[in-house]
């Protein structure tokens, strides 16, 4: 659950969408919600942050996904 741990370090709200499944967006700081994303290997996720440290949050999460799963994250937004 490192994703939530990293997301929780930031003040900004973090929402995540599973584009592969066109899911609703969920709270990136919630263990239950992140599991409900059904983000399996190969899924494309969109990470959305809003707040004072939004840019840093998205960068940190993007690089976490990149390192952990060896996949290319989608370009950060916001």
């Amino acid at each position: 659950m490192r994703f939530i741990d990293v997301a929780s370090k930031f003040q900004s709200s973090v929402t995540v969408t599973n584009i592969s499944r066109s899911s609703e967006s969920v709270d990136g700081k919630s263990a239950m919600h992140m599991m409900l994303l059904e983000a399996t290997m190969g899924s494309v996720l969109r990470v959305h942050a809003r707040g004072v440290d939004a840019r840093e949050a998205v960068d940190a999460l993007a690089s976490l996904v990149e390192q952990s799963f060896g996949l290319n994250p989608t370009p950060p937004t916001d």
Partner: peptide, 13 residues
């Protein structure tokens, strides 16, 4: 049990 702990700390839940 990491995930269990994560869920119990989950403010949404």
């Amino acid at each position: 049990f990491d995930w269990h702990i994560g869920v119990l700390k989950d403010t949404n839940l």
